[in-house]
Computed example of a mutant assay.
Amino acid sequence: MEEIQKAFEQHMVQMEDLVQKFSTELRSGLQPAYENFMGFIHAIDWKEPFLMGLLVFHFLLLVTTIISRKNSNFQMCLFLLALGGVYLAEKLNKFLRENWRSFATQNYFDSHGIFLSTLWSGPLLVMAIIILVNTLFNLCYLIVKWKKAELRHKAKLYHNKHD
């Protein structure tokens, strides 16, 4: 019983430290996060051909997603491809970390995958969310359309019965 009490007390001390650190960060505002973000942005050479290609790829994917918003089957394929790209990001990061000299001037691909998560997985997840929201809107539209048709059918049956 003493071991459980001791473990509980240690856990409470850790939780207290975490809450204190979190509240300190909240009080300091968004300045440290902004500085880290700006440091990340400035550390990247945006004129690298592979980065320009990646940005163009994401832009074209966004345009394709918007243009195909009425085609549910195509959107589901895009959705699965986007999530597949996120799923394969770790393997892609490893491959790119080993071969960065063939396409980049510096190694952006750290062992934690921060760069690839930000510039590959992040936009793909945003695209997946856009597709998901669009699909939900389409489903709502179909439910309303179905319900209207059901009500028209019931009204027609009612009028035929009473005529």
Rank of each mutant, 00 (worst) to 15 (best):
E2C: 04
E2Y: 05
I4R: 05
I4F: 10
I4A: 13
I4P: 00
Q5T: 04
A7T: 11
F8C: 02
E9K: 08
E9G: 03
E9I: 07
E9V: 09
M12E: 15
M12N: 11
V13F: 03
M15W: 01
L18R: 12
L18G: 06
L18S: 12
L18T: 14
Q20T: 15
K21N: 14
F22W: 06
F22K: 12
F22E: 14
F22N: 10
E25W: 05
E25T: 15
E25A: 15
L26S: 02
R27E: 13
P32E: 13
A33H: 04
N36I: 10
F37H: 10
F37Q: 05
M38A: 05
M38V: 14
G39V: 11
G39W: 04
F40M: 08
H42K: 08
A43I: 07
I44P: 15
D45G: 04
D45Y: 00
K47L: 10
E48L: 06
E48F: 01
E48P: 01
P49K: 11
P49M: 05
L51Y: 07
L51F: 06
L54W: 00
L55A: 09
V56M: 15
V56H: 02
F57S: 03
F57P: 09
H58T: 02
H58C: 02
L60I: 03
L60D: 02
L62E: 01
L62P: 01
I66H: 05
I67L: 14
I67Y: 09
S68L: 15
K70N: 13
K70Q: 15
K70A: 09
F74K: 01
F74M: 14
Q75G: 06
C77T: 12
F79W: 15
L80F: 09
L81P: 00
L81D: 03
L81V: 12
G84C: 10
G84F: 13
G85C: 05
V86N: 02
V86F: 03
A89G: 00
E90H: 08
E90C: 06
K91R: 09
K91C: 03
L92Y: 01
N93K: 05
L96R: 04
R97Y: 01
R97L: 06
N99K: 06
N99Q: 09
W100F: 08
T105L: 11
N107P: 01
Y108A: 09
Y108F: 08
Y108L: 12
Y108M: 10
F109K: 02
F109H: 02
D110F: 05
D110R: 00
H112F: 03
H112T: 12
L116C: 03
L116T: 15
S117H: 04
T118S: 05
L119C: 08
W120D: 12
W120R: 03
G122F: 10
G122W: 07
L124V: 12
M127F: 03
M127S: 11
I129S: 02
I129N: 01
I129F: 04
I131A: 04
N134K: 13
N134L: 14
L136H: 00
C140Q: 09
Y141R: 03
Y141E: 07
I143G: 00
